[in-house]
């Protein structure tokens, strides 16, 4: 073995955290807002608007139906325009974020939809402004679902980030493919997979305990 596995792992881990972390933060904010918007435009208690809702819904669905590896290639011009390059971890953040926005938007929408309509109606009946209902009732009531959505999105992002190698983005998944699969260094593959399993477990545990903390009412 003519490369330092430890060194390579360190670099790859950093790349994975960088790609997943950055795209997660952006997608939770943007996707959350998009999910809220999708919910508000379906709900009679807020601003039901079928045309607006379906237009945005179709865009989200299109993004979600394109396999990530293809989206990564399709978005290359946009990536170039935004980050100035089409290679490296930085450039992978763009398609990862786009995918995750669409993904998290639907999860957030589902979380909002699960909020008891009667509770919204009660807030409406007491003369609260919609902004106060959204921040005072809707988001706190949907928080457990929103947190669970973040957990699921993070784990999906780690999966997608394995394809970053296509454009030289690196990351732990890429390391597994290049050394473990393409160079027949099976132990590298095993080590990478083991690390991924541990990371995903940790994320799930953290996510679950965060959700539990939020769900003080149980």
């Amino acid at each position: 073995m003519n490369f330092n596995l430890q060194e390579a792992l360190k670099t790859s881990l950093f790349e994975t955290f960088y790609m997943v972390g950055l795209s997660l933060v952006i997608s939770v904010v943007v996707g959350g807002i998009l999910g809220l918007f999708l919910y508000l435009t379906t709900s009679k208690l807020f601003f039901k608007n079928v045309i607006v809702n379906q237009t945005f819904g179709v865009v989200v669905n299109i993004l979600r139906s394109i396999p990530f590896i293809i989206l990564l290639v399709l978005l290359l011009p946009i990536t170039k325009a935004i980050v100035g390059t089409t290679i490296g971890a930085k450039s992978v953040v763009v398609p990862l974020t786009v995918t995750a926005i669409a993904f998290y938007a639907r999860l957030a929408q589902a979380a909002f939809s699960e909020v008891d309509k009667g509770v919204i109606e009660a807030a409406n009946a007491c003369g609260a402004h919609p902004v106060k209902i959204i921040f005072g009732i809707l988001i706190p009531e949907a928080l457990v679902g929103l947190v669970n959505g973040i957990t699921v999105t993070t784990i999906s992002l780690i999966g997608y980030s394995a394809m970053a190698g296509t454009v030289g983005g690196g990351g732990i998944g890429d390391l597994a493919i290049r050394y473990g699969y393409q160079r027949y260094e099976t132990e590298v593959m095993f080590v990478c997979v083991a690390i991924l399993v541990v990371i995903v477990q940790l994320i799930q545990l953290t996510g679950d305990s965060a959700a539990k903390k939020v769900k003080r009412n149980s």
């Binding site: 009667g118 409406n124 003369g127 009531e141």
Partner: peptide, 17 residues
């Protein structure tokens, strides 16, 4: 106007959070 009119419901509709 609505602030002048209270309403209570069969299923209470309290915010669980």
């Amino acid at each position: 106007y609505r602030r002048n009119i209270g309403i209570i419901f069969q299923h209470f509709n309290l915010a669980s959070s």
